[in-house]
């Protein structure tokens, strides 16, 4: 059985508008936004999906 952690979390450059909404709400503080690029600490992220709902444009997917 694949565990939760095996699920991949991704934000697509074509959709992300670098707004920081996901960064502020992630309960584990594991999303990084340098000036334009969004990144996740895959080891800390629990795939809780909160950032997916907070993103106004649907740029984050967990699969």
């Amino acid at each position: 059985m694949p565990g939760k952690r095996d699920r991949h979390i991704d934000s697509f450059g074509e959709t992300c508008i670098s707004c920081g909404a996901c960064v502020g709400i992630c309960p584990l503080n594991c999303i990084y936004l340098d000036e334009w690029r969004i990144g996740f600490d895959e080891d800390v992220c629990t795939r809780c999906g909160i950032c997916v709902r907070a993103c106004p444009v649907g740029a984050i997917t967990i699969a």
Partner: peptide, 11 residues
Amino acid sequence: VSQVKSAAEVK
């Protein structure tokens, strides 16, 4: 956000 049901709903 608690009233957002699916991705990209705000848009």
